[in-house]
Amino acid sequence: MARGDAEFVEFARSASGRLTHAAFLMTGNHHQAEDAAQTALVRTYASWSRIRDEDAYGYARTVLVNHLVDGWRRPIREYPTDDLPEQRRGDVADEVATRRWLLDILGTLSPRERAIVVLRHYFDLPEAQVARELGVSLGTVKSTGSRALQKLRATGTPQAQGTCR
């Protein structure tokens, strides 16, 4: 295996989890999320010699988001509770309730709102960078984020919904 390949393998192993989860948050579908993460990693590997010394993770994230944005015209199916967590981390019932609450919340948002929320609050990107990566204005990011937050407040927290024990 070439040196670059070894570096890519290491990168892919460390980045694939967050990329896939971000895609899941944007689509609500594990299968679609895995496909999107795989596509992002394929394209990242194809450009690896050029980007490996730069921000490879940022490149992969941008590819992922744009790939999903391109797919917004397709219907996005929701599978709110399609499977249980594979690892027991804390209380399973709490985790299932949190997952359901999260998908309910994200399900009230438009695809663009979802993408903005994920980039802003999952990847912790500054608003200006979110605007650049999505190709929208800073004002759009601010107003969309604000709308999403209003929906969030209207929906309440898991505890407020009574979904947690």
Binding site: A37, L41, W101, H121
Partner: peptide
């Protein structure tokens, strides 16, 4: 919640 619902996805991808 977005972080707490992460799964060990890396096993799902075929490098």
């Amino acid at each position: 919640a977005m972080r707490a619902t992460e799964r060990p996805y890396h096993d799902d991808l075929d490098l």
